[in-house]
Simulated scan of single mutants.
Amino acid sequence: MSLTYFRITLLRSAIGLPRRSTDVLKALGLKKRMATVFHPVSPSVAGQIMRVKELVSVQEVDQALTKQQVHLERKPDPGYYVEKSSVQERGEMLGQ
């Protein structure tokens, strides 16, 4: 049996909300907007999520990603690609 995880992303800030909501977010490990954390699926974590369901986005995933993997997943495409490096181009010019 494989372990599944909740992928929890904080979408809205808890500013101005009751202390209880802020404390639940701290317990989940969410400090900043758009931060993502992974927790094993369990009734206690599900209860915490229900307390702040308006503030977070939740997905059930098969494996937890590292912080770096989450960052690379969110990183946009640069919008360009390199056909040839300058070294290759220089070599072609000298070869002619």
Rank of each mutant, 00 (worst) to 15 (best):
T4C: 02
Q59F: 06
S44P: 04
A46E: 09
L55M: 09
V24S: 04
V56R: 02
L30F: 07
L55K: 03
T22C: 12
A14C: 00
A14I: 00
P40M: 10
L65M: 09
I15Q: 11
L65R: 06
H39F: 01
S85Q: 11
S44I: 00
E89K: 10
L65Y: 08
I15N: 11
H39N: 08
K67Q: 13
A64T: 06
P43W: 00
G79C: 06
A27S: 14
F6V: 02
M93E: 08
Y5G: 12
P76M: 03
M34V: 05
L10R: 03
K26V: 15
K67W: 10
V70L: 09
R51D: 14
L17T: 11
K26S: 15
T22K: 15
S85R: 11
R12K: 05
T9L: 13
G95H: 01
G29M: 04
Q48T: 03
Q63K: 14
P43L: 05
K26H: 15
L17W: 07
G47M: 05
L17C: 04
M34Q: 11
V87A: 15
G91H: 01
R90Y: 07
E54V: 10
E89W: 09
G95A: 07
V24T: 13
Y5T: 08
T22M: 12
G29I: 01
D23H: 04
Y81G: 03
F38T: 01
R51K: 13
E83G: 13
R7E: 14
V61S: 04
S85Y: 09
K75S: 09
P40Q: 11
Y5V: 03
Q63I: 10
P76V: 02
M50K: 12
L65Q: 08
L94P: 05
Y81Q: 05
K75F: 05
M34E: 13
Q68T: 15
R12A: 00
R51F: 13
G47L: 06
M93N: 05
T22R: 15
P76D: 10
S21A: 13
L25H: 07
R19Q: 14
Y80T: 00
I49S: 15
I8T: 00
K32R: 15
E73P: 02
L11C: 09
M34N: 14
K75A: 10
M93L: 06
R12S: 01
S57E: 14
A46P: 05
S85W: 08
R51V: 13
V61Q: 03
Q88L: 15
K75P: 03
H39E: 10
Q69T: 12
Q48F: 00
V52L: 02
E73A: 08
T36A: 04
R12N: 01
H39T: 01
Q59Y: 07
R74L: 09
V45M: 04
L94I: 14
K53T: 09
L11T: 10
P43R: 02
T66D: 11
A46C: 06
K53C: 10
K26I: 14
E54T: 11
Q68I: 15
F6R: 01
K26L: 15
L55Y: 01
L10I: 03
S44V: 00
L28G: 06
Y80K: 03
R20N: 11
L25M: 07
K26D: 15
E60R: 10
I8L: 01
F6S: 03
K53P: 07
S57V: 09
L28A: 08
R90I: 04
R7I: 05
T4P: 00
V58T: 11
A46S: 11
V45S: 03
L28R: 05
E73G: 08
A64C: 12
L94A: 14
G91W: 00
Q63D: 10
T9Q: 15
